[in-house]
Each structure stands twice: as structure tokens, then as C-alpha cells.
Simulated scan of single mutants.
Amino acid sequence: MSAAVETSALLKPPGIVVKDLALRFGQQTIFEHLNVEIKSGEFIALLGASGVGKSSLLKIIAGLAKPSAGTVIGSDGKSLSGRIAYMGQQDLLFPWLNVRENVTVGARMRGEKADAAWADHLLEQVGLNARATALPAALSGGMRQRAAIARTLYERRPIVLMDEPFSALDALTRAKIQDLAAELLVNCTALLITHDPLEACRLGHHLVVLSGHPARLGAPITISGLPPRAPDNPEVLKSQGQLMRLLTEHE
């Protein structure tokens, strides 16, 4: 068992409660009346058309943006501040830091001693141990994305929010990193934005679609079995088809 799993298993991660959330820009309402509860330890996949408000919703949950109405709070009744690791669509690696330094940058910014052993373990898991001292300019786009994933997992937070974290990876690397994320986040509460129905069905305990104008959240789709599921799992194939129909209907 990894150090991350051992540490997080000692404490039950908080769930996320979104209540009557709305976001407006001037006269335009992006979404409204969003209500959802992500239970402790659940991995939720959020899908929807481009521009529907998925990334904005994730940023509000992360505390990086303010809603026009509504609240986001932990299921324990406490603020989520300080308990979230967030990964956006861009890798945002610091160009003057090498890969290992980028992975541990959160600790460095907090004035903490970096956990080099944990960082190197993660770099090995994402296939970057041989590039630990390389600068981001020397990496491919997929390598940069893997470094950003390692940086997110390095934080060992009980809540992890990810915005299309595997989008820049080739199919084989994506499957491997999906498996790794599912293993390392098993004792976390996780919310993943993805445009890939197969990815959602492999990783999510439940799937939710954001759609409409203004956007609303549909009823959760539950998939049996534990992630990561095999791509040819009958339940995965069935749910993938259901998701494709839903997404096509709301395009």
C-alpha cells in the first residue's frame, strides 16, 4: 500500500455538498439551481458540451471563483478550504524548475521540506523517473501532463478536482495513468471533468451530465463495480452508449 493510501485511509475524506448554485455574467445565466452531493470517497465524472459551465463549476468548488448564488461546503459542515488539490486543463509547470521541483512546488511554496521519496515514487509511477531533472521545455505535451498529474497527487489532499487531466495523453498512456489515478485516489473524494465517455465509465462511481441553457445537472448514472473498470466491461459499454445518447441529445 502506498504512503498516500495509508495516510488517507486513517481519515474519512469529506464529501462535497453543492446547494442551489448559480453563475451569471451580466444578463447571461450559465447555470442555476445546481444541487448535488458527492459522498465521502466517491469518484464522480462530470460530462457536458463545451462551454456549458463544467470548468466554472469546478473552479467554484475549488474556491477559485465565486458563484452568483448558492453554497459549496463539506459534508461534515466545514469549509473545503485547504482540503482540495486542483488540476486545471493546462499543466502550468514552472519553466525554470525541473520536473521533480515542479512536483514538489506546493510544499516549497508553503515553506515545507519536500518529500523527495514520495515525489520520486510518483514520477516512477507516471513514467518520468528518468526525466526528474529535466526542464519542462524538454518534455513532450504528454510528459508535461503526466508531471502535472504527479504534482496534484503529491499533495495527498482528501478532495481532488481534475479538469480533463488525461486529455493530452496517447491512448495507452492514458489507460495506464487512469489506472494509477484510480488506485491513488481510492480513499479520496474526487470530481473529474472529461469529454470522454469511456474514461468516465472506467473511473466514475457515478456519472453526471451538465446540460441546457441555463445548464442543469441531470440525474446521476450509477455504474456497478469498482474503478478502474476494464474497457470491455459490459457495464462500461452499456453506460458508454447511454452517455453518448444523452450527450448527443443535448448538443
Rank of each mutant, 00 (worst) to 15 (best):
A200L: 06
S2K: 01
R151Q: 08
G15K: 01
G77E: 04
L217I: 08
I221V: 13
D76L: 02
P158S: 00
D76I: 00
M1V: 10
M1R: 13
R83V: 13
R216L: 11
G241L: 06
A130W: 02
S75H: 01
A22W: 06
A117D: 13
G241V: 00
I73V: 14
Y154R: 09
L57V: 12
G48K: 03
A3N: 07
R108V: 02
V103R: 07
Q240P: 10
A175Q: 03
Q27H: 14
L247C: 02
S55E: 03
Y86N: 07
H206D: 08
W96A: 11
A4W: 08
L247P: 05
L58S: 04
L192R: 09
L203D: 01
Y86M: 04
V52D: 00
G204C: 07
L80A: 08
L123K: 12
A132K: 15
G142K: 13
I159D: 01
L217T: 07
E124K: 14
L161K: 06
P231F: 12
M162T: 01
L184T: 05
S40D: 09
P136V: 14
V18S: 06
Q89F: 11
S211D: 07
A62C: 06
R202P: 00
P136D: 11
Q27L: 12
R202D: 04
K66D: 07
L92Y: 13
H250Q: 14
A171N: 01
E251G: 12
I193T: 10
L198A: 14
P14I: 05
R202M: 11
Q28K: 15
G70H: 01
G204A: 15
R144H: 12
R156H: 03
S75Y: 04
I193G: 09
V208K: 09
S211N: 09
A181E: 01
I30S: 12
V160F: 00
A4D: 13
G53D: 07
H205R: 08
G41A: 12
V18I: 15
E249M: 12
A69Y: 02
A3Y: 11
I60V: 13
H250P: 03
L226G: 12
H206T: 08
A45I: 09
V160W: 00
I44D: 08
R156D: 12
P220H: 15
R108S: 14
R24V: 14
A175C: 00
E251F: 08
L169Y: 04
E164Q: 05
A138T: 15
D115Q: 05
L198F: 06
P231Y: 12
F94M: 12
E101C: 08
P165M: 07
G225D: 06
A168W: 06
L123R: 11
R144F: 14
I16L: 02
K176F: 02
L184R: 02
M143K: 10
I177Q: 13
I44R: 11
L203S: 01
K59H: 08
P227D: 10
P234M: 13
G218T: 02
T71Q: 03
I223M: 11
M143W: 15
K113Q: 13
L169F: 03
M87E: 03
K19M: 05
P228N: 04
E6I: 04
A175S: 00
R151K: 07
L122N: 10
P227Q: 11
A219V: 12
T71A: 00
S50H: 09
V209Q: 05
V5Q: 05
M162S: 06
S81M: 15
S224Q: 11
A150Y: 04
S239I: 00
L237S: 02
R144K: 15
P136T: 15
L58Y: 03
R146N: 06
C188D: 03
